Amino acid sequence: MVILEIINRQKNGYFEVWLTNEEQQLYSRSELSALILSQADTEKCRVMFFLSGSEELLPNTEKLLIMNSGCR
């Protein structure tokens, strides 16, 4: 079962849509945008997509923390 994470931030002018790799394969972003915007209270609204990457989160987070701490 796939549950989309959509956050309504119309007061700020946009909706957030978070997609996993599986959801990216299942759904068309243009169709999702059209559906979401059809339900918006205002015409001046955007849809922002946040997409999962293809790499493992833990090792990349560790590398990022090490780089940001200056411990190379």
Score class of each variant (00 low, 15 high):
M1L: 14
I3G: 02
L4S: 15
L4Q: 11
E5N: 07
E5W: 12
I6M: 08
N8T: 10
R9I: 02
Q10C: 11
Q10L: 15
K11C: 02
K11E: 07
N12C: 09
N12R: 03
N12F: 06
G13Q: 08
F15V: 09
F15A: 08
V17S: 13
V17M: 13
L19G: 01
N21H: 13
E22M: 10
E23L: 02
Q24L: 00
Q24Y: 00
Q24E: 14
R29A: 06
R29C: 11
R29Q: 12
E31Y: 09
E31P: 01
E31T: 11
L32I: 15
A34D: 15
L35F: 01
I36A: 02
I36T: 05
Q39V: 00
A40W: 07
D41K: 02
D41R: 08
T42D: 10
C45Y: 07
R46T: 06
R46L: 00
V47H: 02
V47Y: 00
M48N: 13
M48T: 06
F49I: 09
L51M: 01
L51T: 03
S52C: 02
G53Y: 00
S54Y: 08
S54L: 12
S54I: 09
L57Y: 00
L58N: 09
P59R: 05
P59H: 13
N60V: 02
N60E: 13
M67N: 14
M67K: 15
M67D: 09
N68W: 03
N68P: 04
N68C: 03
S69K: 14
C71I: 15
